[in-house]
Write a protein that binds this DNA or RNA. Structure first.
Lengths: 117, 117
DNA sequence: CACCTTTGCTTGCGTTTTGCAAGTATGGCA
DNA sequence: TGCCATACTTGCAAAACGCAAGCAAAGGTG
């Protein structure tokens, strides 16, 4: 999948710059899952939207690259690698909440169903 | 440009459904411009991000199709067609504000420079 | 400790979307 | 009536996406 070439900034508008990082159909869904406490690659694959694995790998590396997420090893019995949000990533919670609220108010058939893991 | 086939809903999550409509690099910028009072095709073309005209036409038609924007004729001396947000579109203001605030807080070099027209 | 399964990716390839340039149709104005 | 600005559409190459398959490494099992 495409790697990061030095990316052109379309403008200095904060909306534009945020969209340059988060403006696609998948990135915020991964952030959503992380906010719900999911952290393993497998967890993201199993979300109901069924992201393709190449897209997932690409978005995770970009989230890390932008300092929104980071890799770490949870202290559980198995020492598998995982991902979690940085403070910068955690601060996306307000964005996610406003997006979710707009969807609930304006799109019929939506439902806040996902539960923290 | 690709017209709307009956679109598959990835899940009932309000974040997902919102991203199915707004999740790309351009749509929210058009909404931003409309919130700032811009309404003519030309106005959107002249924003600093320099959207391509085929993308703009496509996004405008999708915004209208989703009931976020509508065409209307302003009562000015010239009777040109224009676009404006519906109530549903206006309610995206909170989303835009949270996105803009996150950008201002987390991306260096961003600046809220655009002024209402 | 050999083998099997799960996990976390990468690769290939056909389809869709994007970006850029050029072309066209329509309305307003002189 | 002719010109110019506006509001698009069209064509095409390049990039991104979506799907299936493959693969390496870690863990668990007998």
């Amino acid at each position: 999948m495409a790697m990061n070439k030095t990316q052109h900034k379309r403008s200095c508008c904060p909306v534009t710059c945020t969209l340059d990082i988060l403006g696609d159909k998948w990135t915020l869904l991964i952030v959503r899952d992380m906010l719900l406490g999911r952290c393993y690659y497998k967890d993201f694959c199993q979300s109901p939207e069924k992201i393709a694995t190449n897209i997932l790998a690409d978005r995770l590396s970009k989230l890390v690259e932008h300092g929104i997420a980071e890799k770490w090893i949870p202290d559980e019995e198995n020492g598998r690698e995982a991902y979690r949000l940085t403070a910068k990533g955690q601060s996306l919670k307000t964005v996610l909440e406003s997006v979710a609220q707009w969807g609930l108010n304006n799109i019929k058939g939506t439902e806040a169903r996902l539960k923290p893991k």
